[in-house]
Computed example of a mutant assay.
Amino acid sequence: MTDAAIVKLWAGMKEIGDGGLSAMIFFHDLPIYRLSPDAFEAENQRSIDQCIANSFGSWDVPQEHIDRSRRILTVSAIQRGGAWEFNEVVGFLRLHFVGSQIRGEYVGTDRKRIYRTRRKVFHFKTWKLAPEVEIADTNDDQSIYRSVTAYVDRCRRELPLRYFDDRWLREVGPFLNWKALRQAGR
């Protein structure tokens, strides 16, 4: 199915709303990264160390030259590839409510091997990355929040080599009025 067909189908589902299908209430696009921030930084350092080792080898070079080269290579790496946040994203998990369930559409890159690049095109991958989570009957804000985080944890197990950046969800989520958000689309 092409991306255009999926967009048309999704738009049709929104129009149907309560006329057969439950309305989908999208509430967060959770970024999925190639690497965690720590792994990204370690990869950068390995690259810089390797470049310095290749450049100077076993020569007796003053430490100030090596330090200057390290600073130049660090600035160059940032200019060439950018910082981790926003530049290492390889996909998104579009979280939404469907009736009494929480689901997440997965949108990602089409490459077989994902490496450091700034030329990414994102394509729809699947309607739900992991089996949906039912919202508990209690329907209070904290139980809905726990259901949302449980769904994200399920998705994390589906893509174990990727880093799900759920910082916003974990920091803000406990304070949201989830019940009102969920009922907004009804």
Rank of each mutant, 00 (worst) to 15 (best):
P174F: 11
D141T: 13
K112R: 15
K120R: 15
R167A: 05
K8F: 05
A4G: 09
V152S: 02
A180D: 12
W84V: 06
I52N: 00
D18M: 03
K128G: 09
P174T: 10
W59E: 13
V90F: 04
R170I: 11
N44G: 11
P131C: 09
V61H: 03
F97W: 11
D67A: 15
I78N: 03
R113L: 14
I32Y: 05
G17Q: 08
D60L: 06
Y33M: 11
H123F: 12
D60V: 05
D38E: 15
Y115W: 05
T74D: 02
W168Y: 12
G99T: 02
L93C: 15
D67I: 10
V148K: 04
A23E: 05
F40D: 11
Q142Y: 00
L176H: 00
E85T: 08
N44W: 02
D60A: 04
R111D: 13
F27W: 15
G104H: 03
G82R: 05
C155L: 05
D38Y: 06
F27H: 03
W168E: 07
F26L: 13
E171H: 07
Q101Y: 06
I48H: 05
G108W: 13
D137Q: 12
A150E: 07
F27Q: 00
R146F: 08
H96T: 01
P174Q: 11
F56H: 03
S47Q: 01
G12H: 05
A23Q: 03
R113G: 06
D49R: 10
R80A: 14
F92A: 01
E158Y: 00
E41I: 09
Q142K: 07
A130D: 06
G82N: 08
F56A: 04
K179R: 11
E41N: 13
V121Q: 11
W168I: 08
I52P: 03
F124L: 05
Q142G: 02
R70N: 14
P62V: 13
Q101I: 00
G82A: 08
V98D: 08
L21E: 07
F86M: 04
A180F: 04
Q63L: 09
E85S: 10
